[in-house]
Nucleic acid binder design. Structure first.
Lengths: 234, 234
DNA sequence: CACGTGAATATTGTATACGATTGGCGGTTG
DNA sequence: CAACCGCCAATCGTATACAATATTCACGTG
């Protein structure tokens, strides 16, 4: 067993039309809406409306909402419905602090097991990423960044840690769009990704881990600062 | 009608107080069964059987299973049902490694904000805990240990970290029963809990954090060792 | 005029019924 | 004798229907 986190790399990301159940498909659709910002924090999701919109019954809607609650994207209150969640500044700081605590440590474990194929894939991701940034297609950035970071840590042999980090990255994703569309940290992140890759390939795992730590620290600080300025965050 | 476990609790699940929905009550009932070991890893949970046993429809059963999947207690495969999950040795090592990385750090943040009321509660928990151990009532140990550790870290101001640690502690819980009924680490854990409390109250937060780290490290090593010996772990 | 109270309404929670998918079994065939 | 194919039973997934609960608003009362 222990197959909880592996398959999501190959299957669930795979394609929109590969879903075996309706509820899973709805969950994915809603997930993307929330992550893309189309459904803002605080919005209430009414089962009837969603059911009618998707042309299905309420049962799969309910199950999809439960799956989303598992990922922390909505909060369900009995008899009162589901509400899209948002992160407070404290929670964002916490998420980045966790990433700082965990990611470099895992990179040290994972780096020396990265294969040439892994490096090829990571470079490809980085390229996609910088292309997407130049094109201004912010929608895909979070996903690409997530896959990049997870790809780096893939071979750490720590499945539970990886699952946790996947969740943290997803939570970073939503607020990060804000950061990216505003600041110039974009280019910096791109350069840092490249540098981390180079250090890993050169076998300088400790230096790579340090840079990764700085990379995450900076992203966190920058994001928190922006969040504090646009103080409307719930 | 082989198993009518409904009798053991005179009140029907639907009438259980504290739960506002049937699905939540079922989820809690199943959770306790899994955590207590009554439902071993690998066991398949059939919705029809559970529905009949609880005297309710399959819908709340399904939703309860989804909630359990959120907590990682079962794995649901489309069209093939839910199976109780077990942790591999690697995952257990990972869980304890995560606790080692996170808990001491949070204790440093939390310790100086612990109030006299907090200390009173923590001492009470520790007393309950040692009493339960002398009485051999292993069932409650996990819950008490969880509340003790979470209570220590309560004021760290890191909500997300706390939620993650809560999950880690729950995952430690199941395999830990094994450890406790076998080894003599019981008394040691009790003493360490007391010592950690004393150091916190004395303001020696760094020393307390160090001891906490050692405490968790030892529990992890001991458990992994036992797991490796009784190699039946799935 | 403020405020508690009650019924009406909207929304969620659960039961029942039907359809879809999976896995196994027996028959047939090379 | 082994392997393949189609049928059948078991189980899960979804739709429809009903019940329970929370929210809203009008109403009467202090």
């Amino acid at each position: 067993m222990a197959v909880t986190a592996q398959e999501r790399g190959t299957r669930s990301v795979a394609g929109g039309l590969g879903h075996r159940t309706v509820s899973a498909a709805v969950a994915e659709a809603l997930r993307q809406r929330i992550l893309s910002g189309a459904l803002a924090p605080g919005v209430q999701l009414r089962q009837d409306a969603l059911a009618e919109e998707f042309g299905i019954s309420r049962i799969p809607i309910r199950e999809a909402l439960l799956q989303l609650e598992a990922g922390g994207l909505v909060k369900i209150v009995p008899h009162r419905g589901a509400v899209v969640t948002g992160l407070s500044v404290e929670e964002i700081e916490d998420v980045f602090q966790l990433r700082v605590s965990l990611e470099p440590q895992l990179l040290i474990l994972s780096a020396r097991h990265l294969t040439p194929e892994d490096f090829a894939e990571l470079r490809s991701l980085r390229d996609e990423y910088s292309t997407a940034l130049k094109a201004g297609t912010v929608e895909t950035w979070g996903e690409l960044n997530r896959r990049f970071h997870l790809g780096l840590l893939r071979h750490a042999g720590r499945p539970r840690s990886l699952a946790i980090i996947a969740g943290l990255l997803q939570d970073c994703d939503r607020p990060t769009r804000l950061q990216l569309s505003v600041t110039g940290d974009v280019a910096r992140a791109d350069m840092e990704h490249t540098a981390i890759l180079d250090l890993c390939e050169a076998g300088e795992v400790v230096a790579a881990a340090n840079l990764l730590r700085i990379h995450v620290e900076h992203a966190g600080r920058s994001l928190v600062e922006i969040y504090r300025k646009s103080a409307a965050a719930v």
